[in-house]
Deep mutational scan, measured.
Amino acid sequence: MDSLVVLVLCLSCLLLLSLWRQSSGRGKLPPGPTPLPVIGNILQIGIKDISKSLTNLSKVYGPVFTLYFGLKPIVVLHGYEAVKEALIDLGEEFSGRGIFPLAERANRGFGIVFSNGKKWKEIRRFSLMTLRNFGMGKRSIEDRVQEEARCLVEELRKTKASPCDPTFILGCAPCNVICSIIFHKRFDYKDQQFLNLMEKLNENIKILSSPWIQICNNFSPIIDYFPGTHNKLLKNVAFMKSYILEKVKEHQESMDMNNPQDFIDCFLMKMEKEKHNQPSEFTIESLENTAVDLFGAGTETTSTTLRYALLLLLKHPEVTAKVQEEIERVIGRNRSPCMQDRSHMPYTDAVVHEVQRYIDLLPTSLPHAVTCDIKFRNYLIPKGTTILISLTSVLHDNKEFPNPEMFDPHHFLDEGGNFKKSKYFMPFSAGKRICVGEALAGMELFLFLTSILQNFNLKSLVDPKNLDTTPVVNGFASVPPFYQLCFIPV
């Protein structure tokens, strides 16, 4: 009986604490739906499609509103004006990374994606500088992407125009580009180590996009005490870190300090320079996690976009025909596509942009946080508050993009057929937390897609009208449904 009384008292205290925290903070924060004790607004949000729920709530509470995930307040920004004001106009104040408990377990605050403060700034600055020195957006990395595009075309030829699921092959190409940047090595598509790495990356994007992960991140005790797919994700990350550590040891034994070959060499050189400046942010643990982040951000996002792009091109054969006509006119058949071609191919450029806009790969991006107490639109948001960005509300804005739910390359073309930029184009987020590999991803999408369409016609196994382009999961990332196609050599 005594234990029951204690339990009831504990629960009562928890409920009172929950109510007090919510009521004391709500006077400062933007308005929002009334949260339930302990669980907050979790029942009012469709976990399978958070973005749709945010759109519905914005119609009631406006472009800036507050939700509670458990006891934790989260300020939501919906629509271009609110997102721009926060991420661009007040970029420094909104540059923090929001709480992501599962990532905390995986990387302990290291790396480039989930770190904060001085650690994040130094690692991000170093990573950007190193990638630029190796030619991100310049010639040397373009050579690597072109080489991988040629290998991709050869792998597709091996399908002999038979029906195939493109998931694996389209994942190999961007993964190999990242391998060449980090390890100075590309792998054969049949290499077992490479296959294991690909498998872990593919599993992780599916797990991260599941409703279960949303629950884990908002009720963090689940991570330590409950079984579930989150444990598989943590094991996959541990596998990748151990693999990278092996490569780091190989580099330490063979590195030429006067001739760095890749990202690992550059990081080890930085560690050597910083060894007298303790404590340094440049450690082996930081290198492991930064490399894992580059793999995660640079492989599955690009391969998922490529997979979605081919599905949309199957669905819209008239678009595919126009792209192939432009390829034939500008590039021809006797040389590989290059980035200089893009400025002469406005329709193809528009298609690449429209694919990214339409699929809305990361509907709410990753959570941000404010780095200080900030007054925002007459609300006071306390330091450390998590900020949720609705990228969907920007990419699918119906004023900027008429009929935003329709796939239409003319969203990025003017009346004369010239490519038209849009400030609403934010597939990689915006501001200080914009994806480090934005330029690389854009290069890969253009070169891989043009190389495929230069060499193959795409054949659907069903009537294009019957192809479903609805994402199968739409949590962290929008993942396309399973499909097969035939690559018919031109």
Results as ranks from 00 to 15, higher is better:
Glu246Val: 04
Lys121His: 14
Leu4Ser: 05
Ile205Arg: 14
Arg26Ser: 13
Cys372Gly: 09
Glu405Asp: 07
Leu314Met: 11
Ser95Gly: 12
Leu54Cys: 09
Ala103Tyr: 09
Ser210Tyr: 02
Lys160His: 10
His251Asp: 02
Thr305Ala: 14
Gly91Asn: 12
Ala309Leu: 08
Lys72Val: 05
Ile327Ser: 01
Gln252Cys: 10
Ser422Leu: 05
Ser303Thr: 08
Thr167Ile: 03
Tyr189Ala: 03
Leu131Gln: 02
Gly98Cys: 13
Ala106Ile: 12
Leu306Arg: 01
Asp262Thr: 06
Ala439Asn: 15
Pro37Thr: 03
Val323Gly: 00
Glu438Val: 08
Glu288Asp: 04
Lys119Thr: 07
Thr283Phe: 05
Ile389Ala: 08
Lys459Gly: 06
Glu122His: 12
Thr320Gly: 08
Ile327Gly: 01
Leu197Tyr: 05
Ile213His: 15
Lys322Glu: 08
Gln22Tyr: 09
Gln22Glu: 14
Val6Gly: 07
Cys216Asp: 02
Asn217Ser: 14
Glu281Ser: 13
Ser365Ile: 12
Ile488Tyr: 13
Leu485Gln: 01
Ser180Pro: 01
Lys200Pro: 02
Ser254Gln: 13
Gln356Met: 11
Glu272Ala: 11
Ser242Gly: 13
Lys121Leu: 11
Glu328Lys: 11
Asp143Ala: 13
Ala161Glu: 06
Gly137Glu: 11
Arg125Leu: 11
Asn378Gln: 13
Phe183Ile: 03
Phe482Ile: 12
Ile123Asp: 05
His276Ala: 11
Cys435Arg: 02
Arg132Pro: 07
Ile327His: 00
Lys315Gly: 04
Cys338His: 05
Gln146Ala: 11
Gln356Pro: 01
Lys72Tyr: 04
Val6Asn: 05
Asn196Gln: 14
Glu142Tyr: 04
Cys13Lys: 01
Trp120Met: 11
Ser460Ala: 15
Phe226Tyr: 04
Phe114Ile: 07
Ser390Glu: 02
Ile222Leu: 14
Lys247Gly: 05
Leu11Met: 12
Asp265Ser: 14
Leu7Cys: 06
Val113Gly: 12
Gln484Gly: 04
Leu449Gly: 01
Gly62Ile: 01
Leu208Arg: 15
Arg157Gly: 06
Glu354Thr: 03
Ile88Val: 12
Gly475Trp: 12
Arg377Gln: 07
Leu391Ile: 03
Ala103Pro: 15
Leu461Lys: 15
Phe476Val: 13
Leu311Ser: 01
Tyr379Gly: 02
Glu354Gln: 00
Phe448Ser: 01
Phe282Gly: 03
Thr469Val: 06
Thr55Val: 14
Ser343Thr: 08
Val76Asp: 00
Leu54Asp: 01
Gln146Thr: 09
Arg139Ile: 13
Leu156Thr: 01
Met345Arg: 00
Phe456Ser: 01
Cys172Val: 06
Arg333Ala: 08
Met406Glu: 13
Lys52Asn: 15
Phe448Thr: 02
Ile244Arg: 01
Leu170Glu: 01
Asp143His: 13
Val145Cys: 05
Glu155Arg: 03
Ser220Lys: 15
Leu7Met: 12
Phe126Ser: 05
Phe194Arg: 02
Arg125Ala: 11
Pro480Glu: 02
Tyr61His: 12
Tyr424Arg: 09
Ala149Thr: 04
Thr470Met: 07
Met257Ala: 12
Glu85Val: 05
Val8Ser: 10
Leu7Ala: 13
Ile207Phe: 13
Met240Thr: 07
Gln261Thr: 07
